[in-house]
């Protein structure tokens, strides 16, 4: 696990559900075939209503044209991020699109577990809502050793909640690596 995560912010609202992150019609592609799995990156966040895509103004596409990698590496959400179905394709799609971390006030349980156990990205919680304090395109730096998030564009720093119980799994890079490290498998 890298202690410093840097990148441009993509800001979303509350209750971003898995049907918005990766619509059900796309769940049929292979997750293991390198080429075919790029489709998940391409369709990541494709069902977020466009006026709510890239806040505060909206109207910003997460993925441009035929790309499968986004220029945004950090998602800033609100409450209940990742609610809805259990599809692990959701954090997978975001990882495929190049997302390294999500920062949200709270997560739906399955999305949070999938992100951590699958080692796709780091889901970080904040004591206060940041999705009305950060704008899409702002340069963000997250320091996991101190749990501070700095908005380089506005030069403001915010506190993140520590990862608590799941830190060893995040550090190991997922549940399998954690289990191997601890001689469970």
């Amino acid at each position: 696990m890298e202690n410093i995560i840097k990148g441009k912010a993509f800001v979303l609202g509350d209750n971003i559900h898995t049907d918005q992150i990766i619509p059900a019609e796309h769940l049929v592609y292979s997750l293991t075939d390198e080429e075919e799995s790029k489709k998940y990156g391409h369709f990541a966040l494709s069902s977020v209503p466009i006026e709510k895509s890239g806040l505060p103004n909206g109207g910003i596409k997460f993925i441009e044209g035929d790309n499968y990698i986004s220029e945004y590496k950090i998602i800033i959400g609100g409450s209940n991020f990742g609610c809805g179905s259990s599809r692990e394709h959701a954090p997978f799609a975001l990882q495929k699109a190049g997302v390294l971390a999500i920062v949200a006030e709270s997560y739906a349980r399955i999305f949070y577990r999938n992100s951590v156990d699958g080692g796709f990205l780091v889901p970080l919680e904040t004591p206060e809502k940041l999705n009305n304090l950060v704008s899409t395109g702002d340069e963000i730096e997250i320091d996991l050793s101190t749990y501070f998030l700095t908005n380089k564009t506005t030069d403001k720093t915010y506190t993140l909640n520590n990862l608590g119980n799941v830190l060893p799994i995040v550090e190991a890079g997922g549940i399998f690596d954690y289990a191997r490290k601890n001689n469970m498998i």
Binding site: G84, E88, N114, G118, A179
Partner: peptide, 30 residues
Amino acid sequence: GTDSNTCTSGAFGMFATGVGNTDGAFIMGT
């Protein structure tokens, strides 16, 4: 179950919940 609505089975006085693919694979092996 690898489906969010697995909580349905809780109607039978059991603990039932949904997980993702990685957790499903982990359970399948362990």
